[in-house]
Amino acid sequence: MPTFPLTLAIITHNEADNIARCLDSVPFAAEKLVVDSGSDDDTVAIARAHGARVVRQDWLGFGPQRNFATTQCTHDWILVLDADEYLSPELAAELEQRLPQLMAGDAPAAYLRRSSIYMGAPMRWYRPAVGERMARLYHRQRARWSDARVHESLRFDGPAPTLRAAFNHNNNPTLPHKQLKVLRYSELKCRDWLDKGKPVRMWQAPFVFALAFLKDYVFRLAFMDGWRGFMIAQTAASYALYKRMRYYEMVNNPESVARAAAVLTRHQIDR
């Protein structure tokens, strides 16, 4: 496969189990960049062994960390993957065909589709896990990541094409992985709310869980994926509710912000 003047950019922290597969799935990238926030496993060594240049950067939050990675790339065109994601052979072949025309044009970005593997098997019906459209390929002079600590998005103006084939996401391989992510993402999201002075609306709490569960389980077709679909809908609804409870605590007990940060850091789930 030919190489293209494109950088694969990945942000990592303790991703030794995933990073090799992610890097190896993009053989056409002229540069592979890993921005690591202090891994204490073999992530860095494995990344280098698989052809990546590694840059060390303390954790800034998802949006700022991705923007920092953008500044470290050699090439203007950048493909972003998480360490637990990897290109399918079909998408790699499609990119090989379409990249020359895309890179020669003036499009700011391109959308890729993501297919999720949950509890060891692909989801078949749950809509966010089957062909979810995500902007992951972009020109750094025409697009920029939002500064959100979590749930960041790529911002750009103008139309962007969508590729047909999907990349894969090994999403939360166990329920403990998911629960730890809920703690981490909730903390980051609530700090964003705190910075913006978002009003506390605990009166919504009794409805949040039920509505979030209904949205995922029924309208997003999670029920079609059996008990795995039920578990996805339940954990999504729990996340929606927990964020609001945690934000209430931050506002009404400000010292809980630092105390929670200390315990999350101690258990290495703060980034």
Rank of each mutant, 00 (worst) to 15 (best):
Pro89His: 04
Tyr247Ser: 09
Gln141Thr: 14
Leu33Ile: 06
Trp145Asn: 01
Asp192Tyr: 08
Ser88Gln: 06
Ile11His: 04
Tyr248Val: 02
Leu95Trp: 01
Ser88Pro: 03
Arg53Leu: 11
Pro128Ala: 05
Glu255Gly: 12
Pro89Glu: 07
Thr162Pro: 02
Pro159Ser: 12
Lys178Asp: 05
Pro108Asn: 10
Asp225Asn: 06
Ala69Thr: 11
Thr235Ile: 01
Ala49Glu: 15
Ala83Gln: 09
His151Asp: 12
Trp59Val: 03
Ser186Gln: 05
Met245Thr: 01
Arg164Lys: 13
His267Val: 07
Cys22Trp: 08
Lys215Asn: 13
His177Ala: 07
Glu96Phe: 05
Val263Met: 14
Gln268Asp: 14
Lys189Cys: 06
Phe167Asn: 12
Met119His: 10
Pro64Asp: 13
Thr7Val: 06
Cys190Lys: 09
Leu221Gly: 00
Glu132Tyr: 13
Ala262Arg: 14
Tyr217Lys: 09
Asp82Trp: 02
Pro176Lys: 09
Cys73Trp: 06
Tyr217Val: 04
Thr12Leu: 02
Arg191Ser: 05
Glu152Asn: 12
Ala49Leu: 04
Leu99Val: 06
Gly61Asn: 05
His151Ile: 03
Arg142Gly: 01
Ala165Ser: 14
Glu31Val: 00
Leu211His: 12
Thr235Ser: 11
Ala262Asp: 13
Pro100His: 10
Ala110Asp: 07
Arg220Glu: 15
Arg149Asn: 12
Thr235Leu: 08
Asp195Asn: 08
Thr235Tyr: 00
Gln65Gly: 10
Ile232Ala: 06
Asp41Ser: 00
Met1Ala: 12
Pro122Ser: 06
Lys178Cys: 12
Phe4Arg: 01
Asp76Tyr: 10
Phe167Lys: 00
Met224Asn: 01
Phe62Pro: 00
Glu15Pro: 05
Leu87Ile: 03
Gly197Asp: 08
Ala93Phe: 02
His13Lys: 14
Pro122Ala: 09
Pro122Asn: 03
Arg144Tyr: 03
Arg201His: 12
Phe230Gln: 01
Pro108Ile: 04
Gln57Cys: 15
His267Cys: 06
Ala109Gln: 01
Thr174Val: 09
Ser256Glu: 09
Trp193Val: 02
Trp193Met: 13
Leu79Asp: 08
Asp216Thr: 14
Arg244Lys: 12
Leu221Asp: 10
Asp76His: 15
Thr70Phe: 03
Asn172Asp: 13
Asp270Gly: 10
Tyr239Phe: 13
Val130Gly: 03
Phe4His: 14
Ala104Gln: 13
Gln57Arg: 15
His267Tyr: 14
Ile269Ala: 07
Thr235Lys: 00
Arg127Cys: 02
Ala240Tyr: 01
Ala69Tyr: 14
Ala92Pro: 01
Ala30Phe: 07
Ser37Tyr: 02
Ala104Trp: 08
Gln234Ser: 08
Gln141Asp: 14
Ser256Asn: 10
Met103Leu: 10
Gln97Asn: 08
Ala45His: 05
Arg56Met: 14
Phe28His: 11
Val251Ala: 05
Cys73Asp: 05
Tyr86Gly: 00
Gly61Ala: 07
Cys190Leu: 07
Pro100Asn: 11
Lys243Gln: 15
Glu187Cys: 07
Val34Met: 08
Thr12Gly: 02
Leu6Met: 11
Met231Tyr: 03
Ala260Met: 13
Asp24Asn: 15
Ala261Asp: 15
